[in-house]
């Protein structure tokens, strides 16, 4: 896929190529992952938009398998980091090791860690201590790693796909707010339905194992991301995004009633950026060249649910971020309402 901006016909061909390639990736992943169509779609959307994904769910729901399959369907350098309580930051970023030279002199040489890949699977990220979790901060936002005052730039594309267990579980450390904010989407994986469970049994306990073909490359993802950014968004749709984010700020005059009652800190501007970028990809996948309100609404929950910091009253009343977001989505007016 080329990034050249030629005539409208070329752009239309690029759009068709975009849809074909994204569908192929989703289709390949679907060979391994039963059901969870929205999770697969949203994960691919994040990859195209260049964002990091946080996938939450109890163990055994296929979170890791999903990311591994994506790594196989797209020709990317893949690495996996299993987060444990004794994992250290240097285990992620890499470190300087002392090398003996042929002339007898000893020099430091940087040994890159597993973060130096295109697609990094941070498995069970909340099993590690906050200090180790924070080792990914710079890589996720600035696509670089600083070790001993030396800056090492990561090769594009770079994605972090982290899985985490629900924070109520034993032996987990909640992610720092600054790190959570760097995830474009937080996706919540639920238990499969009865039909899906039967399908999982059929696929995984038989002799034949499906093969995953490589249908895209890292360059394709970069080109698709750049192309999606060209999708039109009208001012009134942009205003809707702003209104949604402002509704999560408890001190804002337009804040929702539930926000004032239960939210300590609202969503950052990154939430708005995530929503718009994801909505543009949704629009392209749907065969449109403009963002609609429904695209924004589809992107709102995964973009904002992890960026709402609730207060103690919310915890006491058992109010979840999703409930507040639902109320905000219901009450925020769109142009033409």
């Amino acid at each position: 896929m080329t990034l050249a901006v030629d005539g409208s016909e070329t752009t239309e061909r690029q759009a068709q190529d975009f849809r074909d390639r994204a569908s192929a990736v989703v289709s390949e992943v679907g060979k391994f992952i039963v059901g969870q169509r929205e999770i697969v779609r949203d994960t691919v959307v994040c990859l195209i938009a260049g964002g990091n994904v946080l996938i939450e769910g109890v163990p055994g729901l296929g979170k890791t398998e999903l990311v591994r399959t994506l790594g196989r369907a797209i020709d990317l350098r893949f690495s996996r980091i299993q987060f444990t309580p004794d994992l250290m930051p240097a285990d992620i970023t890499g470190t300087n090791v002392v090398m003996d030279g042929t002339d007898g002199q000893r020099t430091f040489r940087f040994e890159p860690g597993p973060v130096f890949a295109n697609l990094v699977l941070a498995d069970e990220i909340n099993r590690a201590t906050p200090k180790t979790q924070a080792a990914l901060l710079e890589a996720m936002q600035e696509r670089q790693v600083t070790v001993a005052r030396d800056v090492h730039v990561l090769d594009p594309p770079f994605f972090v796909m982290a899985t985490q267990n629900p924070i109520e579980m034993e032996g987990t450390y909640p992610l720092p707010e600054a790190q959570v904010d760097r995830f474009m989407f937080k996706l919540v994986v639920d238990y499969p339905t009865s039909g899906e469970l039967s399908e999982i049994l059929d696929r995984t306990t038989g002799a034949a194992q499906p093969e995953v073909a490589r249908v895209a490359t890292g360059d394709d993802l970069l080109a698709m991301g750049a192309f999606a950014r060209r999708v039109a968004i009208a001012p009134h749709v942009g205003s809707y995004v702003v209104d949604l984010v402002k509704s999560t700020h408890p001190q804002d005059p337009v804040a929702h009633e539930l926000t004032r009652q239960y939210v300590r800190y609202g969503c950052s501007p990154r939430a708005a950026q995530s929503m718009v970028l994801a909505a543009k990809v949704y629009a392209m996948l749907d065969g449109r060249y403009n963002v609609g309100f429904d695209d924004i609404r589809a992107a709102a929950r995964p973009s904002m649910r992890h960026r709402l910091l609730l207060n103690f009253e919310a915890e006491a009343d058992g109010v979840a971020a999703e409930q507040i977001l639902d109320a905000i989505l219901m009450s925020t007016r769109r142009a033409g309402d």
Partner: peptide, 30 residues
């Protein structure tokens, strides 16, 4: 906006009328 909403056109008409910052070819396609 009224027709977009009524016929579930996903803001196709209102985006074309209101304009956007999309580049020329994308705007033409839209």
């Amino acid at each position: 906006l009224a027709y977009d909403r009524r016929l579930a056109l996903f803001e196709r008409l209102s985006t074309a009328i209101a304009g956007s910052r999309a580049d020329g070819h994308m705007r033409d396609l839209q």
